[in-house]
Design a protein around this nucleic acid. Structure first.
Lengths: 336, 336
DNA sequence: CCAAATCATTAAAGCGGTTTAATTAAACCG
DNA sequence: CGGTTTAATTAAACCGCTTTAATGATTTGG
């Protein structure tokens, strides 16, 4: 690759001049500009992004820390989130550096990243990385609440407790008492939040919580989310009574529906299903159309991007945003 | 941020020594190593990735050029592909720089990228960028055939013509003559390839091709792929006779199924459906389970990653790989 | 017509690392 | 003990760009 020196030499100017021609930060006379440009084209010269970044301390790249388990692939939630981040960042000229390693393998614990800011998914409890970014003065926005909650850290999140509370209240109002809850993995904070929300709904209506059976997704047992839904129904429908099931995602609901068809269970006559959805379109395409809570993963991503971009402009920015979810009643639930 | 100079000064050594302590490329005595490390921790020093990249001419980052239309979001194909790329690259310590701008807005036409190699989706005819990367000596692997075909360019691709040919042959053997083909967008080369393959199947079996009706996805008309499937069936089932439909993707098939349910058409008794799938799991979860051709988008991505990594080691590497697809007969087709 | 102001250009000093060649210190050996 | 290796460390050059301060050249205006 030709460098700025080559161009400068051949064009008979200083490299400062060549730099100015490309960056247009300083006026250069027309004849000189033309000469430089033609020499550059001749040599196939392109400014080196890395050298430039080093000099101006800016890369126009946003880091996205989105751990993906070795075997598993990205979830629908992550995809939607990513989409939101991409759209928002691209709009402002930023690109995304994907970082899918789990925290403990994170290479960046040994070196800083070539990014102007970072969006980090699902921070863990007392996440070491958060203070590291703080220390390095790299603008950071979390997707998911930091734990412990810290008023100086920007984040976006759903209110998972509230969301489960709404679902619970809705089902209880419809007369459902025995609920099967196919929750997310046990080790996720979102799972805990949801259970709390559901409990709250029961307490508020003065109904004993005993009849709620909570299961957790477990990669060991269930190959896919759909499997999770399918197997759970097959397994539980003989063991315990339930007239409603709350599903982790819409893919899980797909499996639930398969099981009901095989068992001759009619939805929603015999069984009501509510999904905590992250793919509205899929929910609308099932039959019956799925009553679901839209998690707005894309909005979450876009808002994280927006806040980060603002923070990169003004590092003092702090914003903590709860994106609220909405229960959309479709065809898979009915009142008892 | 503390720099290597700060550490060197405070530890009373040269920066070359500090560099060696971190890179371990040269032995440094234990006492010195300890002193440097403790000073580094004290100052919160992390080697600067950009400066390092500039010096060693290596970033351990792979660029992924994956244009996404402004309104539309990533397709399932792209997601799967991305997944494959991520897995393969992560395995070898590379990270992904996502670049979703359409070709004509590509920023990199004005500056080189901080990447060691590039994977580029869906190259256009006579794609300017290909020679630019060549010129810059940046290893490049395409996903999708270059046009014109060039023996020096590495790429991975499906054989879309072959694939459509197989689907056509299969349907014809099952006795199907009138086929509705819900193809991809008209402007995609894959659409053309598929039609050619289908035609070939007809010709080979000496059956007139007149009874094949080809439609194309069009963002203007169809909000979602599912809409495309749904609307097309509603619209065409009165106008022309067909006992089989070939669907662009499994999401389109979802829409087709919705239409058949509404119209009281039984699948596969009254109508056979074959999908060109990029999400096997979805295909298996529908009812009836979808007969489909697995496009192996993830394999495509992983192979592209593998070839690129090899090419970054040995720039003389050239590999052109056709990932073959497989027709999996499930429940949505039957013999007439 | 000369001093002042304006404009285009340049030389050199960064940006924060790596690496080569030279230097010093320590170890070895007959 | 002097000479030779070997090991550890350093000074300085370099990676390719930006930017500041200085320098000439040109224009302006009183």
């Amino acid at each position: 690759m030709a460098t700025i020196d080559d161009v400068a030499k051949l064009a008979g100017v200083s490299k400062g001049t060549v730099s100015s021609v490309f960056s247009k930060k300083r006026p250069i006379s027309q004849p000189v500009t033309d000469r430089v440009l033609s020499v550059a084209k001749e040599l196939g010269y392109f400014p080196n992004h890395i050298a430039r970044s080093l000099a101006i301390k800016k890369t126009m790249i946003v880091g996205l820390k989105m751990p993906i388990s070795k075997e598993g692939s990205t979830t629908q939630f992550e995809i939607q989130m990513l989409n939101g981040v991409i759209k928002e960042c691209t709009k402002h000229g930023y690109r995304i550096l994907l970082d899918t390693l789990p925290e403990h393998e994170d290479l960046t614990q040994f070196s800083s990243d070539p990014v102007d800011g970072v969006i980090m998914l699902n921070p863990r409890k007392h996440d070491q990385r958060i203070e590291r970014f703080e220390q390095m003065r790299i603008p950071l926005v979390l997707v998911g609440r930091p734990d412990p909650l810290e008023s100086s850290i920007s984040y976006v999140d759903n209110d998972n407790e509230q969301l489960a509370y709404e679902v619970g209240s809705y089902l209880l109002k419809q007369g459902h008492r025995s609920i099967l809850f196919l929750n997310a993995s046990a080790n996720m904070t979102v799972s805990v939040d949801r259970v709390n929300g559901l409990k709250k709904a029961y307490e508020e209506q003065g109904i004993p919580y005993d009849n709620v059976h909570v299961m957790n997704f477990d990669r060991q047992q269930h190959a896919t989310p759909m499997d999770y839904g399918y197997m759970s129904i097959l397994q539980m429908h003989e063991q315990i009574p339930f007239a409603a099931v709350v599903s982790d995602t819409d893919r899980v609901a797909l499996g639930i529906l398969r099981a009901t068809r095989e068992l001759g269970i009619d939805v929603p006559k015999d069984l009501s299903i509510v999904a905590l959805s992250n793919d509205v379109r899929l929910a609308e395409e099932m039959s019956p159309k799925l009553t679901s809570v839209e998690l707005s993963a894309e909005t979450l991503g876009a808002e994280a991007g927006r806040i980060l971009i603002q923070k990169m402009k003004d590092p003092s920015t702090v914003e903590q945003l709860i994106v609220d979810a909405q229960l959309i009643v479709r065809e898979s639930t009915r009142s008892l």
